[in-house]
Amino acid sequence: MDCSDNTDNNSNNGNPEENSDFEISDILNFYTEKGSVTDPQSMTFSISGEEHTLGNALRYIIIQHPEVEYCGYSIPHPSEDKLNIRIQTTENTTAIDAMRKGLEDLKSLCAKISETFYKANRDFDEKNNIS
């Protein structure tokens, strides 16, 4: 993804005071944290409504990526419904791409384990109906 020319199109919003968070999505309150867009290689993603359940699994998957130099997550405050994931990558990719790949890998891993469980369950049933 090319982010180098984003400084030129800055006249579409009149109130920078209220917009210090960079909104990626209006659908799911998914945005990158302050100041993170200037460097596409290092970003903090903020996801609302998620916790350690997803945070830790996603972190684990993302650090498997060879181009990722750092990935960590935190829940800044327990009463805030918010999960931050920090990704820093090498020059060869961007943090967003690493996040995208991480999500895709986590999804296929999850699907794989799910399938494994389904098969184990079916085999268990078959074995016990016969005997």
């Binding site: 982010c3 984003n6 199109n9 579409n12 919003n13 920078p16 909104e23 990626i24 867009v37």
Partner: peptide, 9 residues
């Protein structure tokens, strides 16, 4: 939106 929106300070 990453290219079209206002960059953050």
């Amino acid at each position: 939106p990453i290219n079209g929106r206002e960059p953050t300070r």
